[in-house]
Nucleic acid binder design. Structure first.
Length: 423
RNA sequence: GGAGGGAUGGGUGAGCGGCCGAAACCGCCGGUCUUGAAAACCGGUGAGCCGAUGAGGCUCCGGGGGUUCGAAUCCCCCUCCCUCCGCCA
């Protein structure tokens, strides 16, 4: 959510920056609503003032026994009350419209974000080399099925397509990855470990920004008005909803593990098979609450923490800066980590690290009290995967495969599993 | 699922339909005292909206409706929390 005052003070500037990400955005209707709202609010306040003064007089007149005067005043006040009721009805209608309009606006891109479409992302760095094979590399699904790590056929029986079933060493590997990443962030990077609920109410998703615009991406349980978690970002962004934090406690850094569920509506056609795009995957998520002054430094650190996972696994990857038109709704700036999948011959996103600045904080009313005192300010929130396992799992298989279809495990995992090679 | 109890400012907690944005205590900030600290004492300490970061006004006692000239206080609905019973991993 954007600050209406900021929009009011510099409508042209805000609109220009929003148009960088979505050229169809127009602020005029919103400004007109705001104008009307303020006029009405002032009228209502004025009436209330009269009412408040009048009510005090009623009490005084009653005490002095001046009943005739009291009756006259009462009928005047009654008229005022009715007038106010009428105006307030109109006001709340306008407030709802304004709220709706405001909720539908995405975050303002940071000035360091390049203008452009999805295809125009900037590669910030490339780490390592793509592994070289003297044989045609197989894709992860073929490898996994031959090695008995995944069983997509049987998963389809219970649930449907695109719900992976890990089995045998595959289940062990997945579990080890999750646990190892979680521990890495807790022990090496100082995050507070969290295992949150996997279902959450609509409010939580309004705060994080998934609602109202992306309802079709979420699984929903209507009986209970709960949504299935699509990313722990949503849950972690609500941890401190309606709170005023002490600045001394910032930054707060959380790491959560959750399964993630996404309907991927409209995504059929590409990446049909395998683990690239699935309805359920596991993700270790990183989340920061910080001050506005520290948030861009925090973004750098967040990216470094996520990268550490890829580095320790010895995977080849690259780091990209998303252009304005590819930013998530709530994000002001996003840096992606993309891992190399040899069989696909391209990079795939395994982490998306974003600074949402005060966008989510405003929606969730999450503030902090500055150390030197004074009014509470909105915190900045950041989120990043650290990392999503399904694509990581795929990358581990594909990058470490051998001619015979076996897979040499990265050292860290080999140690955890007490297993050098999947064969 | 059934039966009760509760929700008030950073925390605990009091509040008769008008004198309540709200007692008291704790915490926090400032001061007095002290070599310093503690204790004691004194003072100050919520958030939001409109307005020019002014004057001033308005709102907010879990959320939403209602009664009333006037609601933290009365009525209705909802949510959440707690206790007990049942069921259950």
């Amino acid at each position: 959510m954007l600050d209406i005052r900021r929009i009011r003070e510099d409508p042209a500037g805000v609109e220009e920056r929003l148009k960088r990400r979505d050229p169809s955005i127009e602020l005029r209707p919103l400004l007109e609503l705001d104008e009307e709202r303020r006029k009405l609010q002032q009228k209502v306040d004025e009436i209330r003032r009269h009412q408040n003064e009048g009510s005090e007089k009623v009490a005084a007149l009653a005490k002095e026994g001046r009943n005739a005067e009291k009756e006259v005043l009462l009928s005047e006040l009654k008229a005022l009350a009715e007038e106010r009721k009428r105006l307030e009805a109109r006001l709340s209608e306008i407030e709802r419209e304004l709220e709706k309009a405001l909720l539908s606006l995405p975050n303002i891109p940071h000035d360091s974000v390049p203008m452009g479409t999805k295809e125009e992302k900037v590669v910030l760095k490339v780490v390592g080399e793509p592994p070289k094979f003297d044989f045609p590399p197989q894709n992860h699904l073929a490898l996994a099925e031959k090695l008995g790590l995944l069983d997509m056929e049987r998963a389809a029986k219970t649930t449907g397509a695109r719900f992976p079933l890990y089995i045998g060493q595959g289940a062990r590997l997945e579990m080890a990855l999750i646990h190892w990443m979680f521990e890495l962030h807790v022990r090496e990077h100082g995050y507070i470990p969290v295992l949150p609920p996997i279902l959450a109410n609509p409010t939580s998703f309004f705060v994080s920004g998934q609602l109202p615009k992306f309802a079709e991406e979420l699984y929903y349980c209507p009986e209970d008005e709960l949504y299935l978690n699509p990313t722990a970002e949503s849950l972690l962004a609500n941890l401190h909803r309606d709170e005023i934090l002490e600045e001394e406690k910032l930054p707060l850094r959380y790491v959560a593990y959750t399964p993630c569920f996404r309907r991927e509506a409209g995504a059929y056609g590409e990446e049909q098979r395998g683990l690239i795009r699935v309805h359920q995957f596991n993700k270790v998520e990183l989340f920061h609450y910080t001050t506005p002054e520290a948030s861009y430094q925090a973004l750098e650190e967040l990216v470094a923490h996520a990268e550490k996972v890829l580095q320790l696994l010895g995977l080849h990857y690259r780091v990209t800066l998303l252009p304005t038109q590819d930013l998530a709704f709530q994000s002001a700036k996003t840096i992606d980590l993309e891992v190399w999948l040899p069989a696909q011959g391209r990079y795939y996103e395994v982490s998306s690290c974003s600074n949402c600045e005060d966008f989510q904080a405003r929606r969730g009313n999450i503030r902090y009290r500055p150390a030197q005192g004074g009014k509470p300010r909105y915190v900045h929130t950041l989120n990043g995967s650290g990392l999503a396992t399904s694509r990581l799992f795929a990358a581990i298989l594909e990058q470490n495969q051998q001619k015979d279809g076996s897979v040499v495990l990265p050292r860290v995992l080999a140690e955890l599993l007490d297993l050098e090679v999947l064969r």
